[in-house]
Computed example of a mutant assay.
Amino acid sequence: MSDDSSMLLDGLPVAFADGQTIMEAAMAAGIFIPHLCHHPDFKPQGSCKLCTVKANGRYVSACTLPAKDGMEVENNSPDLNDKRRTMLQMLFVEGNHFCPSCEKSGNCMLQALAYELEMLSPHFPEFYPDRPVDASHPEVLLEFNRCILCELCVRASRDVDGKNIFALSGRGITKHLIVNAESGRLADTDFSLADQAAHVCPVGVILEKRHGFAVPIGSRRYDVEPIGMQVERPATAGTPGTRDEQA
């Protein structure tokens, strides 16, 4: 592929390198495509489907489809944003998301995307699943009620940390996040705050104890600037900035 390969994204020419996905090309150009499960450090997975775009008239996942020269991609349209709102509404009712009382409020990608896409209500009946909290670890609290099954912690622990601390169990509506220990408790693993898996959760599942309100609500990442204006490499363990600033 030549160096001048480009696609049209909402009518704008966007150059891309050989092998880049639509998502990677858009982010490199500073264009926001809504997403939850995408992370630049991991192979694309296409779990959340929020990055669904129209490429040459077909619905596709922007994080998995390679960009092609001359491709015409539709991203920011009423039709696509309506579908994304519906997916967000389903994510909110499938878990227990109570934003006003959540430590991650203002740093939560799910909440930020709801604001970005003007989601005014959950719309569907709440499921209220019974998911016990794991407070066994001395440094970290696991609030399973907020899990959206993005698998970022699973991939980080497996592919980066080499520990396989987390996994998904069950199928369909019973699918849920588990800890890979005989007891099922995080304290019975070698999980550490130094792990990348400790800092990739886009919502409020993996929480550092005694740190929740170090940055006051109103001054947090998505309080300061909407998520659609923050097209950048997500902060991870070992990068500058406070943990409350990380996505």
Rank of each mutant, 00 (worst) to 15 (best):
F144D: 07
Q246K: 14
C201K: 07
L120N: 14
R158H: 09
S47E: 13
A29T: 09
P78W: 10
D4G: 00
S47V: 14
I165A: 08
N164G: 07
Q230K: 01
I206L: 09
T236S: 13
G170I: 02
P40D: 12
R243W: 11
F213E: 14
N96H: 08
G228V: 02
G172W: 02
I148Q: 02
P122I: 03
I22V: 14
I31F: 13
A15R: 14
Q45M: 15
M23W: 04
A17C: 11
A62K: 06
S5D: 12
E245P: 00
M119L: 12
V203A: 06
Y222G: 00
C153F: 04
M23E: 06
T242K: 13
K68T: 10
K83W: 11
K175A: 14
M71A: 03
A67Y: 01
F191M: 13
T189C: 07
L149D: 10
K163P: 00
D69K: 07
V205F: 04
E182P: 05
F98V: 15
I148N: 04
P66Y: 02
L193F: 01
P138G: 12
I31K: 09
A112F: 01
E225F: 00
G11S: 13
D3W: 02
H97W: 01
P78H: 08
F166L: 00
V60L: 06
E118L: 09
V154F: 03
G170A: 02
G11C: 12
A167W: 08
N75Y: 07
A194F: 06
F16I: 05
K54M: 14
K68N: 07
C201P: 12
R58P: 01
A156F: 04
P78L: 11
L152T: 04
E143T: 05
M1Q: 10
M23R: 11
G19L: 13
C150Q: 00
A55E: 05
D244V: 05
T64Y: 10
P226F: 03
N75T: 13
L152G: 07
A114P: 00
R243V: 15
S5G: 05
F127M: 15
A112C: 06
S169T: 15
V179H: 01
P216D: 12
L80P: 04
G46N: 06
T236N: 12
A62L: 05
A214V: 15
N81P: 02
P100D: 06
G238Q: 03
S77E: 11
H39Y: 03
I206N: 06
G228E: 02
E74F: 03
R220V: 02
G11A: 10
T189K: 00
A67P: 01
C37E: 06
V160P: 00
T64C: 11
G184P: 10
A167K: 13
A29M: 04
V160E: 05
I33Y: 04
N164D: 15
Y222S: 01
P202F: 01
N96W: 02
A17Q: 15
Y222K: 01
G57A: 04
M119T: 06
A112N: 02
A62V: 03
V73S: 11
D223V: 03
V200W: 03
D134Y: 08
A26D: 13
H123G: 05
G241V: 01
P78C: 11
